[in-house]
Amino acid sequence: MQQLNIFKLILIGITGLVTLLLAITIGSLLFVPSLASIRQNLGSPELLYSLKLSLCTASAATLFVMLLALPVGYTMSRFQFAGRRLVKTVLDLPIAFPELVLGLCLLLFFGSDHVAAALKKVGIELVFTRQAIVAAQIFTALPYTIRIIRTTFDYVSPRYEFISRSLGYTHFETFMRVALPMAKKGILAAAVIAFARSIGAFGAVLILAGGTYMKTDVLPITLFLNISYGNLDLAVTAGLVMLAVSFLAIYIFEKTEADL
């Protein structure tokens, strides 16, 4: 008979326990409200409003995030330059940063007289508006997205680009025709994560956009507001909707990662 590998058994046991713990915690969301109240809450004007607002702002944020993360991620993957270490640290910093502090920084920056005045000139009024939601989501999602895109390009050997350039394509043409198509799946995965992070962004959104009922009321804010009103069922429903979005995101992410 095969001898027992006790170490391996213990590790598998721990993994099983952790998974169970996570599953039970997440699952508890499903058991609190009755099905009827979930259905009723899903149709409530507040939830519909915040769902719509969440989807719109997160889509806009994802678009901006991708436009910024693609060039930055490619640069960090491909080029050596003075101060590269510092740039990398600054770009990664927000990942380990409490979201509330990030929100406070954003508020101090965008709320300062000069910046607010300058933005107003180009028609952007940021603090405590819906545009602020997008801004807060961008700053929350950007560092993660840059990281994923950088790693994706790290996996594409620069030799393909050298070949393309030796065949007469400029660097930009090479980026469009070789680097982007070869990194396609990783880029899609990055967009999914950017969207999921934007939907879930709370701390920075709350501080920069304020949590105003039916105005800057995205899903996480709805959840938060309704807990404080004691309206647990609506809070749970908002939680469930967000959970569905993240499940979908992780599903797509894993699927694209799998055949990367």
Partner: peptide, 20 residues
């Protein structure tokens, strides 16, 4: 001169064919 204007071709050991 940038590589795209040199007209020098290269073949790598691992072929590096474009997978797409």
């Amino acid at each position: 001169m940038l590589p795209e204007y040199r007209g020098i071709g290269i073949v790598y050991q691992d072929h590096a064919l474009f997978p797409h």
